[in-house]
C-alpha cells in the first residue's frame, strides 16, 4: 500500500498548517509537551518494571505499583501520540522519507502491543502465581522497548 499520498495530505490539514506556520506552537505544544509526556511515560515504565525486577519499593505489593503506574502510562501515551501526530503532520513528507521515523513507529507499535496484549493480561492476577523469571523477562523487555522508542524518536531529528 502506497502511504505517500496520506503523508502529503497530512501536511495540508489544519494541524499540518499550524505546525508549519507557527514555530512557537510547534516547539511548545508539540515538542516540549511530547518530552514532558515522555518523562511521565518513562517514570511509569521504570516505577513498574524496576518494582517487578525487585530493584525498588520491594516493601510495596507489586500489584498495587503496576496498577497505579499503568494509569499514568495510559495518560502519557495518549499525550505522546497526540503531540506526535501534531508534530508529524507539520513535516509529514520529510517523516515519510526518514528511516528513524519508521523505526520509532515500529518500536511504538511493538511497545503498545507488548503492553496491552502481553504485559497487562499476564500481570492482571496475583504476581505470586507467576514464574519470577517470566516477570523479570517481561520487565526487562518493557524497559528495553520504551527506551528504544525514546532513542529512535530523538534520532528522527538527527537524520533526513
Amino acid at each position: 500500500m502506497e502511504l505517500l499520498p496520506f503523508f502529503e495530505w497530512a501536511e495540508t490539514t489544519f494541524l499540518g498548517y499550524i505546525g508549519k506556520t507557527y514555530g512557537g506552537v510547534y516547539a511548545t505544544f508539540g515538542q516540549s509537551l511530547h518530552l514532558m509526556a515522555l518523562a511521565v511515560l518513562g517514570g511509569s515504565v521504570l516505577v513498574a518494571d524496576l518494582r517487578l525486577l525487585n530493584v525498588i519499593m520491594k516493601d510495596v505489593p507489586s500489584e498495587i505499583v503496576i496498577e497505579q503506574a499503568h494509569k499514568w502510562f495510559r495518560i502519557a501515551l495518549v499525550i505522546i501520540i497526540s503531540t506526535g501526530v501534531f508534530m508529524a503532520a507539520a513535516v509529514a513528507q520529510r517523516m515519510y522519507h526518514n528511516d528513524f521515523f519508521w523505526a520509532k513507529m515500529s518500536a511504538l507499535l511493538v511497545g503498545i502491543i507488548f503492553v496491552f496484549a502481553i504485559k497487562r493480561p499476564l500481570l492482571k492476577g496475583s504476581h505470586a502465581d507467576l514464574n519470577p523469571i517470566v516477570i523479570k523477562m517481561v520487565a526487562s523487555a518493557s524497559i528495553l522497548v520504551w527506551f528504544s522508542v525514546a532513542a529512535t524518536g530523538r534520532w528522527i531529528g538527527f537524520s533526513g
Binding site: 518523562a39 511515560l41 518513562g42 517514570g43 516505577v47 494509569k71 527506551f147
Partner: peptide, 30 residues
C-alpha cells in the same frame, strides 16, 4: 543528546511520581 533525553525519562519520571504522590494523584494508598 540522546542520553540526555533518556535520562529525562529516569530523573523527571521519578520526580513526577514523587510529586504526583504528594498531590494525591499517584499511589495514594502507599
Amino acid at each position: 543528546e540522546t542520553t540526555h533525553v533518556l535520562t529525562i525519562m529516569v530523573c523527571l519520571g521519578m520526580l513526577a511520581f514523587i510529586d504526583l504522590r504528594m498531590l494525591g494523584y499517584a499511589l495514594p494508598n502507599v
